[in-house]
């Protein structure tokens, strides 16, 4: 038991790293196809080893720390950003049996721990002693704090229906109807807020290339930079998993197709979410920083609150009440 308790996280880390490796390749390939390009195809067959080569390059690069940077914080920041990204995976149930904890407040844990990353990004931006990095860090903090509120609010509907913060219970209660249908407003708010939390297009302001060059990690090179990138993609993994668990029925098979193992269902749904994130990147321009804030506070938050209200009301309506 104790050996498994040690080995399983290591295995998960390996899986996550493999995912990140191929998610990056997948992203580049998908966007490439969408843009009439081929994408990476030089390293390994079909470009399969491209990311491996990229990571290797990052690891052997000189580790540059700007002279006027706050050295201790500069070194600490990538770790602060990465650790929570990995820690949140502890509560995600991949299938009935493949899970790490059966945590009563799993959803709350996810939300709470994931917001620690903001500190890492802000510290990184601040410690770099670079104005672009500082602006990027500030934007990031403002954005992530603003979007965390609609993100949490949007899942309250699910919590009300399930009566639990335990992610296992949430999946179990989606045996018949996935929450995406009764909670469609909540789902849309959640999805938009999630994209924003991930700092992905169209909400990639903290690292907006055309404005802030690279935002908070402009001064980072080598493996420290790799850590930031890793954190970003692990969050893609985590957020796609969470979306699957909350709204797409987790490992539950649709249309009674239980012949296909639950893990496959989970992976399929999960990949759909991941693809959606990459698809957005090829399509959308970047939203402006003030519009971003307005959107969070004036559109998403009221919608999320309305969703809570709606859930509460519909719960009492006979006939459809059992969906809520």
């Amino acid at each position: 038991m104790s050996l498994l308790a040690i080995l399983a996280p290591v295995l998960l880390l390996v899986i996550v790293l493999a995912f990140v490796t191929y998610a990056i390749l997948f992203e580049r390939k998908v966007i490439g196809w969408m843009q009439n390009r081929i994408g990476p195809n030089r390293v390994g067959p079909w470009g399969m080893l491209q990311t491996v080569a990229d990571v290797f390059k990052l690891l052997i690069k000189e580790d540059v720390i700007p002279e006027k940077a706050d050295r201790a914080l500069f070194k600490l920041a990538p770790a602060i950003a990465f650790v929570p990204a990995f820690a949140v995976l502890a509560v995600i149930p991949f299938t009935e049996t493949w899970k790490f904890t059966d945590f009563a407040v799993g959803l709350l844990y996810y939300m709470a721990v994931s917001s620690i990353t903001i500190i890492g990004i802000m510290v990184g931006g601040w410690a770099s002693n670079n104005k672009y990095a500082l602006l990027g860090g500030m934007r990031s903090a403002a954005q992530m704090i603003s979007y965390e509120i609609p993100l949490v609010m949007s899942v309250v509907g699910i919590i009300m229906t399930t009566g639990s913060l335990n992610l296992n219970d949430i999946v179990h209660s989606q045996k018949h109807v996935w929450f995406i249908f009764p909670q469609i407003i909540g789902f849309l708010v959640f999805l938009i807020a999630a994209v924003s939390e991930l700092n992905r297009t169209p909400f990639d302001l903290p690292e907006a290339e055309s404005e802030l060059v690279a935002g908070y990690h402009v001064e980072y090179t080598g493996f420290r930079f790799a850590f930031f990138m890793l954190a970003e993609y692990v969050y893609v993994f985590a957020m796609a998993s969470l979306t699957t668990v909350l709204y797409l029925g987790g490992w539950n098979a649709p249309f009674g197709l239980t012949i296909i193992p639950p893990i496959i269902w989970f992976i399929l749904k999960f990949l759909l979410v991941v693809f959606f994130l990459f698809w957005l990147r090829a399509t959308m321009p970047r939203i402006r920083v003030d519009q971003l804030m307005q959107f969070a506070w004036k559109v998403l938050l009221p919608l999320a609150i309305f969703n809570i209200f709606l859930t509460a009301v519909l719960k009492e309506v006979p006939g459809i009440g059992h969906f809520y």
């Binding site: 843009q35 009439n36 990639d204 090829a282 321009p285 939203i287």
Partner: peptide, 13 residues
């Protein structure tokens, strides 16, 4: 210009 406002694909088209 679209690249400036953050959209990547139109540039390649």
């Amino acid at each position: 210009y679209l690249l400036d406002v953050g959209a990547m694909s139109p540039f390649l088209y």
